[in-house]
């Protein structure tokens, strides 16, 4: 772990207001990514993992209140003027999203969209040079026949090819950090692995810091260096990926691991965590997870747990790393 992380989020909070009352969707997330490191962020839909990362780049929905600190390469992003943020977005920090069909502009050719990404941050580059760059980028993400493909519209691409275009667009300006928000969720299972492969290869080749947001812990197993588990707007566990799988400290993480289908074991029913995550602004008292927790005790109903750390492995559970944790 180096002294200064590439990207560091501290106590990030995002609140949505209606009629003067605010409800926090992100309740103080802290995490960091080192240069060239892959951080996985895992959590259910609505846990605040996407909103948090969008807000870190100033892309929160209208009317959201963002507080806390987001530092990129030593620079504070929260409260940075829009112009300055814009210069970073797409150049040093890039993002790709879940559904590549709705994430691409349907009435612009793929070429136009990639060239735009290039030229937004290189205004002096000629259209011709930008087109050359676009061609190289398509080759980089292994899209054959780049010349023909550039002149086509998104609807003429398959789902996997579209996501490759999104990736090409994201790495157009050699970013330091790529935030991939559920990059494979909307794709066919067979294509998911291919896209992960493209991402992993680019990450290694371009030495990208990569934040991989997903609800599928299984995706992270082979690809992340570290994992942050998010529940109800907070990071509940953070650890190196092997450590996390070997020794999950939070019952929620244990639940997530248990619900990964295991091909080697003959099992009729897949494990699932009972209940649903709390709705926005309707948090239970004490630990936010206790109503769904099979190991919850008296203290969990009264007191929200703080992070306990043990050798770079942190978990927000009253019973984390306790010797009696064999309950689950």
């Amino acid at each position: 772990m180096s002294a200064s992380p590439l990207f560091e989020v501290r106590d990030l909070r995002v609140a949505f207001g209606r009629n003067g009352t605010y409800a926090e969707a992100v309740r103080g997330i802290s995490l960091h990514v080192d240069p060239g490191e892959v951080l996985g962020i895992v959590g259910e839909s609505g846990s605040g993992k996407s909103v948090g990362m969008l807000a870190a780049l100033g892309l929160q929905p209208e009317g959201a209140r963002v507080t806390g600190s987001v530092r990129f390469d030593g620079r504070e992003l929260v409260g940075l003027p829009r112009r300055e943020l814009r210069k970073l977005r797409g150049s040093r920090i890039a993002m790709i999203f879940q559904d590549p069909l709705s994430s691409l502009n349907p009435v612009m050719t793929v070429g136009e969209q990639i060239i735009e990404a290039v030229r937004l941050h290189n205004p002096d580059m000629s259209r011709h040079a930008a087109a050359d760059r676009a061609r190289d980028l398509l080759a980089l993400v292994a899209i054959p026949q780049p010349d023909r493909r550039l002149a086509q519209y998104p609807h003429e691409f398959s789902g996997g090819m579209r996501q490759r275009v999104m990736i090409a667009m994201a790495v157009a300006n050699d970013p330091d950090l790529l935030i991939a928000d559920e990059p494979t969720t909307a794709l066919d299972v067979t294509v998911q692995a291919q896209i992960m492969e493209v991402l992993a290869e680019l990450q290694a080749r371009l030495k990208l810091g990569l934040i991989l947001i997903t609800h599928d812990l299984g995706v992270l197993a082979g690809h992340a260096d570290r994992v942050a588990v998010v529940y109800a707007g907070q990071v509940v566990e953070q650890a190196g990926v092997d450590d996390l799988f070997a020794r999950p400290g939070h019952p929620y993480t244990r639940g997530l691991i248990a619900s990964i289908p295991d091909m080697t074991v003959q099992n009729d029913r897949l494990f699932s965590i009972d209940g649903t995550p709390p709705a926005l602004g309707q948090l239970p008292a004490g630990c936010a997870f206790h109503p769904r927790c099979i190991a919850a005790g008296e203290i969990c109903r009264r007191e929200a747990p703080s992070m306990r750390e043990e050798g770079g492995h942190a978990a927000a559970c009253h019973f984390a790393f306790a010797p009696s944790e064999t309950i689950a």
Binding site: A94, F97, E116, L120, M169
Partner: peptide, 8 residues
């Protein structure tokens, strides 16, 4: 959102 994320 993509356009904004591109820095437009």
């Amino acid at each position: 959102l993509t356009a904004r994320a591109k820095g437009a």
